[in-house]
Design a protein around this nucleic acid. Sequence first.
DNA 1: AACGTTCGCGCGAACGTTCGCATTCAGTAT
DNA 2: ATACTGAATGCGAACGTTCGCGCGAACGTT
Lengths: 355, 355
Amino acid sequence: MDSARRVTIKEVARRAGVSYQTVSKLLNGQVQLAPATEARIFEAVRELNYRPLYSARSLRSQRSRTLGYSWTPTPPDQANQILDTLLQSMLHAAEAEDYHLLCFPHHADATRQLDSYIRLYETGRVDGFILSSVEYDDPRVIHLLGRGVPFVAFGRSSAGLEFPCIDVDGGLGLQMAVQHLLALGHRRIAALAWPEASRVGENRLSGYLRAMREAGIEPRPEWVRRGEGRVAFGAQAAAELLDLPAEIRPSALVALNDPMAIGAVRTALRRGLRVGQDLAVTGFDDTPLAHYLQPSLTSLRQPIWEIGQRLICQMTDMLKGGRPPEPACSLLAPELVVRESTVPGTQGRPEDLIL
Amino acid sequence: MDSARRVTIKEVARRAGVSYQTVSKLLNGQVQLAPATEARIFEAVRELNYRPLYSARSLRSQRSRTLGYSWTPTPPDQANQILDTLLQSMLHAAEAEDYHLLCFPHHADATRQLDSYIRLYETGRVDGFILSSVEYDDPRVIHLLGRGVPFVAFGRSSAGLEFPCIDVDGGLGLQMAVQHLLALGHRRIAALAWPEASRVGENRLSGYLRAMREAGIEPRPEWVRRGEGRVAFGAQAAAELLDLPAEIRPSALVALNDPMAIGAVRTALRRGLRVGQDLAVTGFDDTPLAHYLQPSLTSLRQPIWEIGQRLICQMTDMLKGGRPPEPACSLLAPELVVRESTVPGTQGRPEDLIL
DNA sequence: AACGTTCGCGCGAACGTTCGCATTCAGTAT
DNA sequence: ATACTGAATGCGAACGTTCGCGCGAACGTT
């Protein structure tokens, strides 16, 4: 029963009356054959249900048509809506390019983690890697660059290192948020930001400053509050902002992430303010929750699907051309999702609302 | 620069002064060598930084040491906290067994999806599959069983098909929830259930009935409400239950999933009831949200990490033994996570609470 | 008629490993 | 001495494919 011998390319060739190398070349599109022979071969392939053996192709061609991917796991008490979408989009893009994704576990120990990358590459299991959660001076980036291992990263690293990557243009995102608020008539717009050490944070904040200045408004120092990006800080910072004298009290605020925005909304509600009218609020990241909150939260959605597509395509392009990794970093625009926290009565599915 | 020629096993052998086949056997643990030779070989391996080429091993040994995994994506507006944990746990278990996971995209078209599975197996890219989201008479199960392709499933299928699988004992979970409520003194306990067509639902519900009867309480028909497992239904069903005459009005209810439990909590709060005292509520699945709600929700957590481990180990065991897939289905107990919706003042991180 | 050129296909040789026996050699029993 | 044993290593042969080159025939061109 298990004696189902594997169908090899030679059997196909014999049945089609050609040499097996010819079959190989036809299937790899490396040669133009007489229509008759071509048909005979395809028919033989179909009849025998021939499938080329992966390991044999890989051994001979010295390519695995496989990319490695590993990610830092999310703590179980908070969901990662990114991962699912990103993986699916990468998998689909990879399939279209006839590539596959090999996933391997994350290790907290950097040496161990690095060893996983190196081993996969040196054993020829993968042709390259997709990196995510890239940190400043990420050791993976340093070592992979050093060994000439092809990779594409989701997220930029520090200025010193140059490598191909895809990232979301956070500055543009905040610019969009501010312009949205300006269009609604707001003039006194504040920002809830991270500490200055954060590159992503400074990048996003710069978009706020830029948009304000472009509108001819010099953002006051009091309007920029910095702290850790959690709900509690957002609530407290919003309280301080609302306590400012009326002539400089913000009527709107942009937060660099959703939790801070949620905190700000809570403060406003507690003070009996109408969110979206007395105080408009925007977040960043578009937490799945943002949709279900009361009021629902205007936020900036990262184009995850497109990011996945680009990561894979950039990678396969690199492998195709055999070009050295070009340090081009593509920036993608986030999408402003307008909801009730800036325009009341916009939408929401109140029947399924959480609390 | 790219002329870094691959180090082969023959070079290692030459340097160690043995035949290359001996090196192979030593590295695969198939032979006992004289300590001196063994040391020489290991040293040569280290000095040359030799790594066996994956495709060559795989070609010769006819094994890929790789498992395929595909999953149905979650709609982007709701997060899937399972996926991340399950993947990581499977990846770690696989690594321990020297296996890898090859992920491939989901296709809505069943034929296309099936073709992905078959192709991966027939090209020798994978030795077997891990299946999740198994449906009734799942076509994947039918075809894989028919072709003798090894696989292990997360979740049982219909009674007609027998195959190796891991599942969570939902009945036991509800039994635990009910026993928890009984221990708190509740006697009139209702259940929010799914329509009868659901196998998972009937399984969970049976645990409710069993626990009640074991406690000498015959559950009244009015106490079992069936509907789609959403927040809205939970809210409505809870309202109906709370409108029952005092002598049969429930003081506690178990929901077969978290959204229904959340709906019930909302109804209770709107009526000014103290949740956890006037009405105790339990959910199922332990949504990440359950932790952050006000009041936080008592729920049943699926042992995802252990499920991943078991899936992989059962799979590798099967491949090791070459045994035919034994249709044993392991059931794992969920964990009851007690929070404020049954025992007020238990915990919660109010400072980070959403709304 | 002799000469390139292109087309269609074939041939030998890898690719780097593991498999299954065969062989050697020392030690022990006959 | 001879034959037997087991431990330590070697040897040839796959595994199924792609690579690179070559060769004959058909085709137009001088």
